[in-house]
Amino acid sequence: MIGPDDERTRELGVEFGPLARELEEHQYPATSDELAERYGDAVLGLPNGEQTLRELFELVPDERFESAADARVAIFNTVGDRAIGRKGYSDRTPPALGEREEWPHESF
């Protein structure tokens, strides 16, 4: 169960768990290699499995981060579509047969 201190551990389809706080508290600037050395065994939860920070940062060696936000962006970019649950899925329902959609499809 997620406690009050762990409220923001899931972001853009990635479950950071305790790594969220560790990245926030880390001293920056830092490189991907330094973060992988320190937190590499941290497991990131994805809709389609799990991956360690070390595995992700092997794809971006020697990248420099000025902040925890920069490190998270690198993680999001590296996990790519693995952070997407069902590809091509939309919870939007198409208009019923005969109903007009909100916007016109004609080009002017």
Rank of each mutant, 00 (worst) to 15 (best):
G85I: 11
I75E: 00
R86C: 14
T78A: 10
P61K: 06
G80D: 10
P47H: 04
D81C: 08
L59C: 08
A96D: 11
E106L: 15
D91Q: 09
A68G: 13
E66Q: 12
R54M: 12
H105Q: 15
R38S: 02
E24M: 10
A20N: 01
P47S: 07
Q27F: 11
L44Q: 01
L46A: 06
A20W: 06
E58K: 11
L53D: 02
S67Y: 08
P47L: 08
L46F: 09
I75R: 00
A68R: 04
G40K: 05
E25L: 13
V60H: 05
Q27R: 14
E63H: 11
W103N: 09
P94H: 10
F16A: 03
T9P: 01
E11S: 11
V79I: 13
T78Y: 05
F57H: 04
A30R: 07
G49D: 01
L35R: 07
D70L: 08
E58L: 14
P104E: 09
E37N: 10
V14L: 03
R38P: 00
L12T: 02
I84R: 08
F76R: 05
W103M: 12
I75G: 00
T52I: 10
F16C: 02
M1L: 06
V60P: 00
W103Y: 14
R86Y: 14
G49I: 08
F57W: 06
R82P: 00
S67A: 13
S107R: 13
V43D: 00
E22G: 00
A83M: 09
L53I: 07
A42S: 15
P18H: 02
S90A: 14
R21F: 04
P29H: 10
W103C: 07
R10M: 09
E25I: 05
A96N: 10
D70K: 09
L44G: 02
E11Y: 13
A83Q: 11
T31F: 05
F57T: 03
G3M: 02
R21D: 03
P18K: 03
E34H: 03
H105F: 15
G88Y: 14
V14R: 01
G3T: 08
